[in-house]
Design a protein around this nucleic acid. Structure first.
Length: 417
RNA sequence: GCGGGUGUAGCUCAGUUGGUUAGAGCGCCAGUUUGUGGCACUGGAGGCCGUGGGUUCAAUUCCCAUCACUCGCCCCA
């Protein structure tokens, strides 16, 4: 029976759900295009090294969530856990590093081996945007504005909060890390086990601990904002100013830290409280060191990824554009099916949405027409065919009229179909 | 990876203090209506009570395991 179950953490998207996903993706793609972001599609498989180098060996994603594929070659291959590293790789593989800036939009499945729950899947779907080759904070503002516009187009902007923080540049961060570690080492014994381990591997992540004891200790810890050098301060200030001018609401969250190594400077998350413990629906930041880490030229970048699954959970059906109601072709008997098909094909060519009804007599077919939410039934029976007519019946009002087949197109147009 | 909860019809859920034919609403199919749907009425189909094992004369019910979902932790979109 196991064969009838989808693999853990994967889901079938049935038509109503699929419609939501397409709507989200299409809306995002259109909005991105209006900013000049072109769609790109990279493979679902990459060499493991692509992610190991960029995300960091110590990141959870690399250390325990990668899907490694059995391949016949020597190089380990994985299902991609995220999108940015693959896009960066593609830029270098295709020699696109000469013509900056590059603005890309992507969408597709990602894979992470983790325990599924609400809003957290093993096959997740993401949309994402990346802006390469711009170190100016205008780029940060624009990329955030794009995310905000997409949420607005989806009518979700009122239900999310933009949280933002700066991680500083390498120099600032290094200095701060040193200060933080020095401070925390004095309180080493009082820290949670989790945080004690992080002290060695990734001390900055201690900042967004949920342990109450840790939080107390952190209250007196040195602040990253105090370690920011002039450059980093100015950068952050400019981004915030830009957001204000564009009327994009945000809240500062000094504890916002990203888990992936490649982030620096601005980090942001659009969060919601509607999805249980999964707060982020769109998140990203700046990754100036990414390209160089992969062995390429030092090209700055900033971008974000959004969880389609999570956005879809927030999208109630009434937020979707309504479906176009079809016309139903209703022959009164199977003998007239071919005539019906002819009429269907003609009307489809004229731009109408037309569905055939299959099998049964008039009553049964009208029932079916009703079930598919058709607005009109086009009835073809013996009398109609004998005189070149067709009966147009409104399924809302119940009225019907017989009209010449040659006038059907015009009459339907007049009804506003 | 760790801890808690749940699993009965297509869906939402009752129920069985272990006992013979396991129920409701919605949905589905058919009829009332062989050229008129929606509404109404009548009838019908559909369940190895998640799966495997154990205890028992007897298990959907109790026990164990497993799988899936779910909530929290970790982490992330």
């Amino acid at each position: 029976m196991a064969i009838l179950q989808p693999v853990r953490g994967t889901h079938d998207l049935l038509p109503p759900e699929c419609r939501k996903y397409s709507y989200i993706t299409d809306t995002a793609k259109k909005t991105a295009a209006s900013y000049g972001f072109a769609e790109i599609s990279t493979p679902i498989m990459e060499f493991m090294e692509v992610f190991k180098r960029t995300l960091g060996d110590e990141s959870d994603i690399v250390s325990k969530e990668m899907y490694e594929i059995a391949d016949r070659g020597d190089e380990p291959i994985v299902l991609r856990p995220e999108g940015t590293a693959g896009v960066a790789r593609a830029i270098m593989s295709n020699g696109l590093t000469q013509s900056m800036p590059l603005k890309y939009f992507y969408s597709g499945p990602m894979f992470r081996y983790e325990r599924p729950q609400k809003g957290r899947l093993r096959q997740l779907r993401q949309i994402g945007s990346e802006l390469f080759g711009v170190s100016d904070p205008v780029g940060d503002v624009e990329i955030i504005a794009l995310a905000y516009d997409i949420l607005t187009a989806l009518k979700l902007n009122q239900r999310v909060t933009l949280e933002i923080n700066t991680l500083g540049d390498d120099e600032s961060r290094k200095q701060y890390r040193h200060q933080l570690v020095t401070y925390l080492k004095d309180h080493h014994k009082s820290l949670s086990l989790e945080s004690q381990q992080r002290l060695e591997k990734n001390p900055l992540r201690i900042l967004d601990t949920k342990d109450e004891g840790d939080k107390k200790i952190l209250k007196k810890a040195p602040l990253l904002s105090d370690s920011l050098n002039g450059f980093s301060q100015e950068m952050f200030a400019k981004v915030l100013e830009g957001l204000k001018i564009l009327n994009i609401p945000f809240v500062l969250n000094p504890h916002l830290v990203r888990g992936l190594d490649y982030y620096c400077q601005i980090a942001f998350e659009f969060t919601t409280t509607e999805l249980g413990s999964q707060g982020a629906v769109i998140a990203g930041g700046r990754y100036d060191g990414l390209m160089a880490t992969m062995g390429g030229p030092s090209i700055p970048g900033v971008g974000w990824a959004g969880g389609i699954d999570r956005l879809a959970m927030m999208l109630r059906d009434e937020l979707l554009p309504s479906l176009k109601r079809p016309l139903a072709i209703v022959p009164t008997d199977e003998a007239f099916d071919i005539k019906g098909l002819e009429l269907a094909q003609y009307l489809r060519k004229e731009g109408f949405t037309v569905e055939m009804t299959y099998g049964g007599g008039l009553g049964k077919r009208l029932k079916k027409a009703n079930k598919i939410n058709a607005c009109y039934a086009l009835i073809l029976g013996e009398t109609e065919i004998a005189s070149g007519l067709v009966t147009i019946k409104s399924l809302d009002q119940g009225q019907q009229e017989q009209v010449p087949q040659t006038d059907v197109r015009r009459i339907l147009k007049e009804k506003g179909i």
